[in-house]
């Protein structure tokens, strides 16, 4: 279950990154559609946070530390909303670049989350 959510978050985050990088390339600030995209990615990350906590509650333990795991879960859930706020305060191509960077950062966090959780667990 966690793996499925992690893949979903990673893919949507990378799509968001490409989309916003294209907007930055075209010298456009983020628009309403981008923010809907950010909301979708954030929702996926929030679902992941809940699923991760439920798995912990059921007694599953990550391979590389529970505190680190929870830290990454929370960090992943905060990344895109913070990028969204930053892009609201920077209404230029650079605001789009921030969201693109946020999507890439989130994808990296997902990779680390996967490693921390460990291959042995579902």
């Amino acid at each position: 279950m966690l793996d499925a959510v992690t893949i979903t978050v990673t893919v949507t985050a990378l799509l968001l990154a490409v989309w916003c990088a294209y907007a930055a390339y075209r010298d456009e600030p983020t628009n309403d559609w981008h923010f809907i995209g950010m909301a979708v990615v954030t929702l996926a990350a929030l679902v992941q946070l809940v699923v991760g906590l439920v798995q912990l509650g059921q007694g599953d333990r990550p391979d590389h530390g529970t505190a680190t795991f929870v830290g990454y879960l929370v960090g992943a859930a905060c990344t895109v909303p913070l990028a969204a706020i930053m892009s609201l305060t920077e209404r230029s191509r650079w605001g789009s670049a921030i969201v693109a960077a946020g999507g890439v950062v989130l994808a990296v966090l997902e990779l680390r989350l996967h490693e921390i959780w460990g291959a042995g667990n579902g």
Binding site: T79, A83, M86, E90, S92, W94, A101
Partner: peptide
Amino acid sequence: GQGPGRLLLWFYGV
């Protein structure tokens, strides 16, 4: 902290 600086600000924050 504006324009390209805002992108740097974001990276440094992360």
